[in-house]
Protein backbone atom coordinates (compact mmCIF):
# COMPACT_ATOMS: atom_id res chain seq x y z
CA UNK A 1 0.00 0.00 0.00
CA UNK A 2 2.21 2.81 -1.26
CA UNK A 3 0.53 6.15 -1.62
CA UNK A 4 0.43 8.71 -4.39
CA UNK A 5 3.34 10.82 -3.13
CA UNK A 6 5.55 7.76 -2.94
CA UNK A 7 4.88 6.83 -6.55
CA UNK A 8 5.38 10.45 -7.64
CA UNK A 9 8.79 10.43 -5.98
CA UNK A 10 9.78 7.22 -7.69
CA UNK A 11 8.78 8.82 -11.00
CA UNK A 12 10.90 11.88 -10.18
CA UNK A 13 13.85 9.64 -9.40
CA UNK A 14 13.47 7.84 -12.73
CA UNK A 15 13.37 11.17 -14.60
CA UNK A 16 16.43 12.38 -12.71
CA UNK A 17 18.29 9.19 -13.56
CA UNK A 18 17.44 9.60 -17.25
CA UNK A 19 18.66 13.21 -17.20
CA UNK A 20 21.82 12.12 -15.40
CA UNK A 21 22.51 9.40 -17.96
CA UNK A 22 21.92 11.95 -20.74
CA UNK A 23 24.48 14.28 -19.17
CA UNK A 24 26.94 11.41 -18.87
CA UNK A 25 26.47 10.37 -22.51
CA UNK A 26 26.81 13.97 -23.63
CA UNK A 27 30.00 14.36 -21.65
CA UNK A 28 31.47 11.20 -23.07
CA UNK A 29 30.68 11.78 -26.77
CA UNK A 30 31.07 15.51 -27.46
CA UNK A 31 34.03 16.19 -29.72
CA UNK A 32 35.17 12.60 -29.63
CA UNK A 33 36.77 11.28 -32.79
CA UNK A 34 35.05 7.93 -33.30
CA UNK A 35 36.69 7.30 -36.68
CA UNK A 36 40.20 6.94 -35.36
CA UNK A 37 40.46 4.26 -32.66
CA UNK A 38 43.63 5.84 -31.24
CA UNK A 39 41.98 9.22 -30.70
CA UNK A 40 38.90 7.50 -29.37
CA UNK A 41 40.92 5.52 -26.87
CA UNK A 42 42.78 8.62 -25.79
CA UNK A 43 39.58 10.61 -25.18
CA UNK A 44 38.09 7.79 -23.18
CA UNK A 45 41.24 7.45 -21.11
CA UNK A 46 41.06 11.10 -20.18
CA UNK A 47 37.35 11.34 -19.66
CA UNK A 48 36.48 8.10 -17.87
CA UNK A 49 38.34 8.73 -14.59
CA UNK A 50 37.02 12.29 -14.47
CA UNK A 51 33.49 11.11 -15.02
CA UNK A 52 33.77 8.39 -12.40
CA UNK A 53 35.28 10.81 -9.92
CA UNK A 54 32.45 13.26 -10.45
CA UNK A 55 29.79 10.59 -10.02
CA UNK A 56 31.41 9.20 -6.87
CA UNK A 57 31.99 12.65 -5.39
CA UNK A 58 28.41 13.70 -6.11
CA UNK A 59 27.08 10.63 -4.35
CA UNK A 60 29.42 11.03 -1.38
CA UNK A 61 28.60 14.71 -0.94
CA UNK A 62 24.87 14.25 -1.49
CA UNK A 63 24.60 11.39 0.99
CA UNK A 64 26.84 13.05 3.58
CA UNK A 65 24.92 16.33 3.44
CA UNK A 66 21.47 14.77 3.71
CA UNK A 67 22.48 12.50 6.58
CA UNK A 68 24.27 15.28 8.40
CA UNK A 69 21.34 17.66 8.05
CA UNK A 70 18.96 15.06 9.39
CA UNK A 71 21.20 14.28 12.35
CA UNK A 72 21.32 17.89 13.40
CA UNK A 73 17.73 18.53 12.29
CA UNK A 74 18.52 21.61 10.23
CA UNK A 75 18.64 21.99 6.49
CA UNK A 76 21.07 24.87 6.10
CA UNK A 77 23.99 23.18 7.81
CA UNK A 78 26.32 20.92 5.84
CA UNK A 79 29.49 19.10 6.91
CA UNK A 80 31.52 21.50 4.78
CA UNK A 81 30.15 24.59 6.51
CA UNK A 82 31.36 23.11 9.79
CA UNK A 83 34.86 22.70 8.45
CA UNK A 84 34.94 18.98 7.81
CA UNK A 85 36.82 19.36 4.56
CA UNK A 86 39.22 21.90 6.06
CA UNK A 87 39.91 19.23 8.64
CA UNK A 88 40.64 16.73 5.91
CA UNK A 89 43.01 19.14 4.15
CA UNK A 90 44.73 19.80 7.46
CA UNK A 91 45.18 16.10 8.21
CA UNK A 92 46.46 15.45 4.71
CA UNK A 93 48.99 18.26 5.10
CA UNK A 94 49.98 17.00 8.53
CA UNK A 95 50.75 13.53 7.14
CA UNK A 96 53.08 15.12 4.57
CA UNK A 97 54.51 17.42 7.19
CA UNK A 98 55.42 14.70 9.65
CA UNK A 99 56.33 11.87 7.30
CA UNK A 100 57.85 13.84 4.45
CA UNK A 101 57.02 13.90 0.77
CA UNK A 102 59.30 11.00 -0.08
CA UNK A 103 57.78 8.62 2.45
CA UNK A 104 55.75 5.61 1.41
CA UNK A 105 52.60 7.41 2.52
CA UNK A 106 53.17 10.30 0.16
CA UNK A 107 54.16 8.23 -2.85
CA UNK A 108 51.39 5.67 -2.74
CA UNK A 109 48.08 7.52 -3.25
CA UNK A 110 45.95 4.68 -1.91
CA UNK A 111 48.01 4.28 1.25
CA UNK A 112 47.93 8.04 1.79
CA UNK A 113 44.19 8.04 1.38
CA UNK A 114 43.64 5.19 3.82
CA UNK A 115 45.80 6.90 6.45
CA UNK A 116 44.01 10.21 5.91
CA UNK A 117 40.69 8.46 6.14
CA UNK A 118 41.45 6.69 9.39
CA UNK A 119 42.80 9.85 10.97
CA UNK A 120 39.80 11.77 9.71
CA UNK A 121 37.28 9.30 11.12
CA UNK A 122 38.91 9.28 14.54
CA UNK A 123 39.47 13.03 14.81
CA UNK A 124 36.20 14.14 13.24
CA UNK A 125 33.97 11.75 15.18
CA UNK A 126 35.69 12.85 18.34
CA UNK A 127 35.44 16.60 17.63
CA UNK A 128 31.97 16.68 16.10
CA UNK A 129 30.50 14.00 18.30
CA UNK A 130 31.67 15.88 21.36
CA UNK A 131 30.51 19.17 19.88
CA UNK A 132 27.02 17.87 19.23
CA UNK A 133 26.65 16.34 22.64
CA UNK A 134 28.03 19.33 24.47
CA UNK A 135 25.78 21.83 22.67
CA UNK A 136 22.86 19.43 22.79
CA UNK A 137 22.42 19.65 19.01
CA UNK A 138 21.78 23.38 19.20
CA UNK A 139 22.21 24.52 15.62
CA UNK A 140 23.36 28.04 16.40
CA UNK A 141 26.20 26.90 18.66
CA UNK A 142 27.21 24.10 16.32
CA UNK A 143 27.29 26.50 13.38
CA UNK A 144 29.24 29.12 15.30
CA UNK A 145 31.80 26.67 16.67
CA UNK A 146 31.97 24.96 13.29
CA UNK A 147 32.83 28.20 11.54
CA UNK A 148 35.52 28.94 14.08
CA UNK A 149 36.90 25.42 13.73
CA UNK A 150 36.88 25.78 9.97
CA UNK A 151 39.17 28.81 10.04
CA UNK A 152 41.20 27.30 12.86
CA UNK A 153 41.97 24.18 10.80
CA UNK A 154 42.76 26.43 7.85
CA UNK A 155 45.22 28.51 9.89
CA UNK A 156 46.99 25.49 11.35
CA UNK A 157 47.30 24.06 7.86
CA UNK A 158 48.78 27.24 6.38
CA UNK A 159 51.21 27.48 9.30
CA UNK A 160 52.44 23.99 8.47
CA UNK A 161 52.80 24.89 4.82
CA UNK A 162 54.86 27.96 5.68
CA UNK A 163 57.45 26.05 7.69
CA UNK A 164 57.56 23.19 5.24
CA UNK A 165 60.42 22.36 2.93
CA UNK A 166 59.58 24.00 -0.45
CA UNK A 167 60.10 20.76 -2.35
CA UNK A 168 57.75 18.89 -0.06
CA UNK A 169 55.25 21.68 -0.37
CA UNK A 170 55.43 21.38 -4.13
CA UNK A 171 54.63 17.67 -3.95
CA UNK A 172 51.87 18.29 -1.47
CA UNK A 173 50.26 21.04 -3.50
CA UNK A 174 49.62 18.67 -6.39
CA UNK A 175 47.44 16.45 -4.21
CA UNK A 176 46.03 19.30 -2.19
CA UNK A 177 44.41 21.28 -4.95
CA UNK A 178 42.60 18.35 -6.45
CA UNK A 179 39.80 19.83 -8.50
CA UNK A 180 37.63 18.71 -11.35
CA UNK A 181 40.45 19.38 -13.76
CA UNK A 182 42.99 17.64 -11.58
CA UNK A 183 41.35 14.53 -10.30
CA UNK A 184 42.99 12.13 -7.92
CA UNK A 185 42.28 9.18 -10.22
CA UNK A 186 44.37 6.56 -8.49
CA UNK A 187 42.04 6.18 -5.56
CA UNK A 188 38.75 5.82 -7.46
CA UNK A 189 38.61 2.06 -7.00
CA UNK A 190 39.36 2.36 -3.31
CA UNK A 191 36.66 5.04 -2.88
CA UNK A 192 33.94 3.14 -4.72
CA UNK A 193 34.67 0.08 -2.62
CA UNK A 194 34.61 2.13 0.56
CA UNK A 195 31.29 3.80 -0.27
CA UNK A 196 29.69 0.48 -1.16
CA UNK A 197 30.92 -0.95 2.12
CA UNK A 198 29.60 2.04 4.05
CA UNK A 199 26.13 1.81 2.52
CA UNK A 200 26.08 -1.89 3.32
CA UNK A 201 27.23 -1.54 6.93
CA UNK A 202 25.03 1.46 7.66
CA UNK A 203 21.89 0.29 5.85
CA UNK A 204 20.03 -0.32 9.11
CA UNK A 205 21.08 3.03 10.56
CA UNK A 206 20.01 4.75 7.36
CA UNK A 207 16.58 3.19 7.77
CA UNK A 208 16.50 4.51 11.34
CA UNK A 209 17.32 7.97 10.05
CA UNK A 210 13.69 8.40 9.00
CA UNK A 211 12.72 8.05 12.66
CA UNK A 212 15.59 10.19 13.91
CA UNK A 213 14.27 13.17 11.97
CA UNK A 214 11.31 13.19 14.36
CA UNK A 215 13.73 14.50 16.98
CA UNK A 216 15.72 12.90 19.75
CA UNK A 217 12.82 12.43 22.15
CA UNK A 218 10.55 10.83 19.59
CA UNK A 219 13.32 8.59 18.26
CA UNK A 220 14.01 7.25 21.75
CA UNK A 221 10.29 6.93 22.37
CA UNK A 222 10.03 4.70 19.30
CA UNK A 223 12.82 2.50 20.57
CA UNK A 224 15.84 3.76 18.62
CA UNK A 225 19.26 3.53 20.27
CA UNK A 226 19.83 7.20 19.50
CA UNK A 227 23.43 7.81 20.58
CA UNK A 228 24.78 4.68 18.93
CA UNK A 229 22.95 5.34 15.70
CA UNK A 230 24.17 8.96 15.54
CA UNK A 231 27.73 7.86 16.22
CA UNK A 232 27.69 5.33 13.40
CA UNK A 233 26.08 7.72 10.97
CA UNK A 234 28.56 10.44 11.84
CA UNK A 235 31.41 8.07 10.99
CA UNK A 236 29.73 7.44 7.66
CA UNK A 237 29.39 11.17 6.98
CA UNK A 238 33.06 11.72 7.81
CA UNK A 239 34.17 8.95 5.49
CA UNK A 240 32.02 10.34 2.68
CA UNK A 241 33.49 13.81 3.08
CA UNK A 242 36.98 12.31 3.13
CA UNK A 243 36.27 10.47 -0.12
CA UNK A 244 34.91 13.55 -1.86
CA UNK A 245 37.64 15.88 -0.64
CA UNK A 246 40.41 13.45 -1.50
CA UNK A 247 39.08 12.94 -4.96
CA UNK A 248 37.96 16.35 -6.20
CA UNK A 249 39.10 18.75 -3.50
CA UNK A 250 36.99 20.92 -1.21
CA UNK A 251 33.82 22.26 -2.79
CA UNK A 252 31.97 23.97 -0.02
CA UNK A 253 28.57 24.76 -1.41
CA UNK A 254 27.83 21.71 -3.52
CA UNK A 255 26.42 19.75 -0.60
CA UNK A 256 24.19 22.61 0.44
CA UNK A 257 22.80 23.06 -3.05
CA UNK A 258 22.10 19.46 -3.90
CA UNK A 259 20.77 18.49 -0.49
CA UNK A 260 18.31 21.36 -0.47
CA UNK A 261 17.29 20.94 -4.10
CA UNK A 262 16.78 17.26 -3.34
CA UNK A 263 14.61 18.05 -0.33
CA UNK A 264 12.62 20.65 -2.25
CA UNK A 265 12.03 18.28 -5.13
CA UNK A 266 11.19 15.16 -3.18
CA UNK A 267 9.23 16.66 -0.27
CA UNK A 268 9.45 13.49 1.77
CA UNK A 269 10.98 12.16 4.94
CA UNK A 270 12.21 8.95 3.28
CA UNK A 271 15.96 9.15 3.30
CA UNK A 272 16.44 6.54 0.63
CA UNK A 273 14.64 8.91 -1.74
CA UNK A 274 16.31 12.04 -0.42
CA UNK A 275 19.81 10.61 -0.71
CA UNK A 276 19.24 9.19 -4.18
CA UNK A 277 17.56 12.38 -5.38
CA UNK A 278 20.31 14.65 -4.06
CA UNK A 279 23.04 12.43 -5.48
CA UNK A 280 21.41 12.31 -8.89
CA UNK A 281 21.00 16.09 -8.92
CA UNK A 282 24.63 16.39 -7.90
CA UNK A 283 25.85 14.03 -10.61
CA UNK A 284 23.77 15.81 -13.23
CA UNK A 285 24.99 19.28 -12.26
CA UNK A 286 28.62 18.27 -12.03
CA UNK A 287 28.76 16.37 -15.29
CA UNK A 288 26.73 18.92 -17.25
CA UNK A 289 28.72 21.75 -15.64
CA UNK A 290 32.02 20.14 -16.54
CA UNK A 291 30.71 19.69 -20.08
CA UNK A 292 30.05 23.41 -20.30
CA UNK A 293 33.42 24.26 -18.79
CA UNK A 294 35.30 22.09 -21.25
CA UNK A 295 33.45 22.84 -24.46
CA UNK A 296 31.90 26.29 -24.03
CA UNK A 297 34.30 28.11 -21.71
CA UNK A 298 37.33 26.18 -22.91
CA UNK A 299 38.62 25.60 -19.37
CA UNK A 300 38.70 29.35 -18.69
CA UNK A 301 36.47 29.03 -15.63
CA UNK A 302 36.54 25.91 -13.46
CA UNK A 303 33.21 24.39 -12.48
CA UNK A 304 33.89 24.95 -8.80
CA UNK A 305 33.66 28.70 -9.39
CA UNK A 306 30.13 28.29 -10.69
CA UNK A 307 29.26 26.06 -7.77
CA UNK A 308 30.61 28.52 -5.22
CA UNK A 309 28.93 31.44 -6.94
CA UNK A 310 25.59 29.70 -7.33
CA UNK A 311 25.88 28.11 -3.89
CA UNK A 312 26.59 31.41 -2.17
CA UNK A 313 23.52 33.02 -3.67
CA UNK A 314 21.40 29.96 -2.92
CA UNK A 315 22.61 29.92 0.69
CA UNK A 316 21.57 33.56 1.14
CA UNK A 317 18.22 32.77 -0.43
CA UNK A 318 17.67 29.86 1.96
CA UNK A 319 18.58 31.98 4.98
CA UNK A 320 16.33 34.86 3.94
CA UNK A 321 13.44 32.58 3.02
CA UNK A 322 13.54 31.06 6.49
CA UNK A 323 13.77 34.51 8.11
Amino acid sequence: MKNEAYRANVRKLVILSILMVLAVVLYMVIDVNFANPKFFKFSMKIRTPKLLAMLVAAFAIGAASIVFQSIINNTIVTPCLLGMNSLYTLLHTAVYFFFGASSFLAVNANAAFIVDLMLMIVVATFIYGYLFKKTNYNVLYVLLIGTVLSSFFGSVQSTMIRVMDPNEYDALLLTLVAGFDNINGEIIGCCVLLLALLVFILRKDLALLDVITLGKDQAINLGVDYDRCIRRLLIGVTACIAVATAMVGPISFLGLIIANLGRQLMKTYRHSHLILGSSLIGMMTLVAGQCLVEHVFAYAIPVSVFITLGGGIYFLYLLLKKR
Partner: peptide, 19 residues
Protein backbone atom coordinates in the same frame (compact mmCIF):
# COMPACT_ATOMS: atom_id res chain seq x y z
CA UNK B 1 10.27 -3.56 23.76
CA UNK B 2 9.72 -0.57 25.97
CA UNK B 3 8.46 1.37 22.97
CA UNK B 4 5.57 -1.08 22.76
CA UNK B 5 4.63 -0.54 26.40
CA UNK B 6 5.29 3.10 27.05
CA UNK B 7 4.83 6.16 24.85
CA UNK B 8 6.20 9.61 25.54
CA UNK B 9 5.18 12.92 24.08
CA UNK B 10 7.36 15.91 24.92
CA UNK B 11 7.10 19.51 23.84
CA UNK B 12 10.16 19.39 21.60
CA UNK B 13 8.52 18.38 18.39
CA UNK B 14 9.74 20.65 15.65
CA UNK B 15 10.04 18.48 12.60
CA UNK B 16 12.03 19.96 9.77
CA UNK B 17 10.98 17.28 7.35
CA UNK B 18 8.12 17.29 4.95
CA UNK B 19 5.95 14.84 6.82
Amino acid sequence: ELAKRLAILTQHNNVQMKL
